[in-house]
Amino acid sequence: MIVSQAAVSESVAPVAMGWGDVLSQQLITGVSNGMIIAMIAIGYTMVYGIIELINFAHGDLCTLGSFLALTLVGALGMEAWAGMGGTAAVVTLLISSAVFCGALNWTIDRVAYRPLRGKPKLALLVSAIGCSFILVNIALFWGGLPMEVFGGGNQAAAPKDFPSLISNENLLGAKSAITVTWRDLFVVIVTVPLMIGLTWLVKSTRLGKAMRAVAQNPTAAALMGIDVNRVIGSTFLIGGALGGFASVIYALYNNTISFQMGYRTGMDAFTAAVLGGIGSLPGAVVGGIVIGLVRALSDGYIEARWTNSVVFGILILTLVFRPSGILGAKLREKV
């Protein structure tokens, strides 16, 4: 209460922002948002790269990751963990959501996608759409749990506040016109190492090589002794785990989660994956950041109501001139 009073009185005289400040601020917002989109986009691009499935359920998988995180915050009373405890809380959330989403994504593949290997590609797509509906419904039920963090569970469908476990203090000092908070840094601190780690995994480990082999040619890979189903399963596991990380970052950065949030995050991430060149990991990252920046700049300098059009307009233009995305490899003919 005292804090908020202070905030109100402080905001009576906000620091004036020059155009340079505004631009920098927009760029900071754009990059932070873009990093989160990129994390989710990696999940799309990995799955697409290996089985050519647009995994519509991926965004909703992330929703469930956020709901798990909020449940843990409530159940373990994490809001009260002070000092290093705060860091411990964030790490706990990241790891548990990653494990949960990875396992769930693996299970979904096992139950809904694996029986459809070798069947028409679009059957797989519809199965993914079905999974997306199921996950949305689970999130709705989850929001109805009788817990304090879910508002007592009376209103399952209402958006839920995610407590600020990360300080919102301006690192550049209260006097500065530009605001950079721990949250912005947190997004970068978590995502960059994960992306580097993932790149290493795909480039240098046996599993990564197996993944690339399966992506190139599953039949040949199988003939070379690679257990294709296991490799695909691992891809879902890793993609899901990254989605789990992303869901916690999303929740801590935006501080609101709702059972339908997977729709827009999923669509943004999918767009990012395609923009960057679907199937390419660096492409997903670049695509995510580009979309984050375009969104921020369009909100800031055009009009928010046209932002979606601007994003998709840029996407279409990019694809018209670079038909396989910014970093996409030239499409190989699959005859």
Binding site: V22, N33, T265
Partner: peptide, 13 residues
């Protein structure tokens, strides 16, 4: 866009 994940850039504006 009511479905956007946040409105931070609008807040800056």
């Amino acid at each position: 866009d009511p479905k956007a994940s946040n409105f931070k850039s609008l807040a800056t504006k």
